[in-house]
């Protein structure tokens, strides 16, 4: 129990929370460039959040206490997920609190309350969003777990810090299992964070909304927290993908130099990841809801392929 470690964990979490809107803004900026539009400032999400936080909350008539508690619970659960995710350093005591499976548990907790809040106001939109969100996540779960399985078989651990250390010392090029798992995980990320082609975060078109339909009735600080939580969730997933499959440069000690290098490297990797995501969102169109199972089945098959590769080619 070293105080430096806990302090570092706290700082890392704060950095996580603070950087989340910026990552969203970066994706938006790249998308604007690709679509020949003028991007808003990188600070725009922060301004939006400030605006929402200073606005008054308006509640729907029949909303119960669940509706009012959900933004806090969701934000809290996602921060929890951010706390246990190694971001720029592995040298924090918090990573041992939860492994990869507990991490998906935190996301599931947030999703559970979000879906309940959607059903709480008694409109058709809320229920529709909740139903679709739960469907998509239920189908994404096996793929997610298969990815965790593959990676943890390679590293023979589910602890994120151990997994990352182990993969750092391996030749990923000679591990087709990891390539498959990474591809599967990318598809899962798209589904879980509600990006195109599964869901469109910027749409309010009635029949295609998933995530937005659930939070339609939120306003003021409640909405701000939910927006922020969604951005943070995207960042956590991006960091997970980067650190599991491309961890080189992550700090192992709490020295200033390794931390600075790790931060710079992470920023670069995140920019690259955001660019990829934006490019994918630009060239792809949103698919129908009933095509999503096919999409997720592909993710599952890729992850399963990764695991079979490991068992057949690499194990022993």
């Amino acid at each position: 129990m070293n105080p430096t470690g806990w302090l570092l964990a706290l700082l890392q979490t704060l950095l996580f929370v603070a950087a989340a809107p910026l990552f969203g803004a970066w994706i938006k900026r790249v998308k604007c460039w690709l679509q020949n539009r003028r991007p808003p400032s990188l600070l725009q999400p922060y301004r939006d959040l400030r605006r929402l936080f200073s606005k008054q909350v308006v509640l729907a008539e029949h909303a119960s206490v669940i509706f009012r508690l959900t933004p806090y619970l969701v934000f809290g659960a996602i921060i929890m997920a951010a706390t246990v995710t190694p971001f720029i350093t592995l040298d924090t005591p918090t990573t041992a609190i939860a492994d990869a499976i507990v991490l998906t548990g935190f996301f599931a907790l947030a999703r559970f309350f979000l879906a309940l809040a959607g059903m709480d106001i008694g409109t058709a939109f809320g229920g529709m969003g909740a139903s679709r969100e739960m469907t998509v996540s239920a189908l994404a779960e096996p793929a997610m777990l298969m990815m965790v399985f593959t990676v943890s078989m390679v590293a023979s651990s589910t602890n994120l810090a151990t997994v990352i250390t182990s993969i750092e010392h391996q030749m990923v090029m000679t591990r087709p299992s990891l390539w498959f798992a990474a591809l599967g995980f990318l598809l899962v990320i798209v589904a879980e964070t509600g990006r195109i082609p599964v869901d469109n975060p910027s749409t309010h078109l009635e029949l295609t909304m998933i995530h937005e339909a659930m939070i339609l009735e939120y306003s003021g600080r409640h909405l701000a927290m939910l927006e922020w939580a969604a951005q943070l969730k995207l960042l956590v997933y991006a960091v997970l993908a980067i650190n599991i499959f491309n961890p080189w440069g992550i700090a192992h000690s709490d020295g200033l130099a390794p931390l600075a290098i790790a931060t710079a490297l992470m920023a670069g990797k995140l920019m690259l990841f955001g660019t990829l995501l934006a490019a994918a969102e630009t060239v792809l169109a949103k698919i129908r809801l009933f095509q999503v199972p096919v999409f997720l089945m592909l993710a599952f098959t890729l992850a399963l392929g990764g695991m079979l590769c490991f068992i057949i080619l690499e194990a022993g």
């Binding site: 008054q56 909350v57 308006v58 509640l59 729907a60 008539e61 029949h62 909303a63 106001i121 008694g122 409109t123 939109f125 009635e206 339609l216 009735e217």
Partner: peptide, 9 residues
């Protein structure tokens, strides 16, 4: 906190 009817399209 003010309470208003939910959005009914």
């Amino acid at each position: 906190v003010p309470r208003v009817p939910a959005w009914d399209c």
